[in-house]
Write a protein that binds this DNA or RNA. Structure first.
Lengths: 119, 119
DNA sequence: CTTTCATATGAGCAATTATTCATATGTTCA
DNA sequence: TGAACATATGAATAATTGCTCATATGAAAG
């Protein structure tokens, strides 16, 4: 606490009330970390590509790998991570594992990102 | 090309047309990388906290550092990255640099993420 | 049951990245 | 002009992470 105080700008008064109010409005730490972890999923181009593909159609693992020109192993590792984040689900269909988006938010999050990127 | 073909599942025919159509619908690589880079900004808890703070109020660097309990240097490094991504801007005001969100998409992207995290 | 095909997984490596520490820059105020 | 303050920056380090390679699992078809 003492050390943190030393970081404050010298400016007395006027900033303090704003800082206090903003501090109260922040989500709790758990939520913040969950949120960052969620966006981390969208922050890798391989995972981004996988999600884009699955926005168009559900698809088995080997088709995803072939379509994207990425090794089966790499795809599988990323799929595991995406499933842990509940963004993707899968079902078995004969010999194949068919993957699909598990959450509608994926679409809306990507769309928001796209509208930023495309100016 | 030959090696990629070997990744395909043996299954003939039926998958091929879907794979082909999806491939055409994918954004170009530049867009995909830009998009992943954008979301990478939201994928770190320090940057996430900074953006949350600035969603509530513009604020100078030292107040952000004090409020979040993170060193001034760490904040400054992250602010530089956020500015490069055009998510945050700043202006000088006396001795202070006042930071603020540069893009309305920040709010909508975070809101979409929140509604996923909060079930 | 044995082989084959689709997928998963673990270890190891290389690359990226967030932080700290020390210091530089630039502004204000005496 | 000089001292004090706010911010920026560079180098070094530690931690995280995405990929490859080899191999394991597990369903299916003969």
């Amino acid at each position: 606490m003492d050390e943190i105080d030393e970081l404050m700008c010298a400016e007395p008064g006027s900033h303090e009330d704003v800082v206090g109010k903003v501090r109260e409005s922040l989500p709790d730490d758990d939520t913040l970390y969950e949120l960052a972890d969620l966006f981390k999923m969208f922050g890798d181009s391989t995972r981004m590509k996988i999600m884009f593909v699955l926005m168009e159609s559900e698809m088995c693992v080997c088709d995803i790998a072939e379509l994207l020109g990425i090794s089966q192993s790499a795809i599988s590792h990323q799929l595991r991570i995406l499933k842990q984040s509940k963004l993707i689900s899968s079902r078995r269909e004969g010999k194949n594992i068919v993957c699909f988006l598990a959450d509608d938010h994926v679409r809306s999050i990507i769309d928001q990102g796209l509208s930023h990127v495309l100016e």
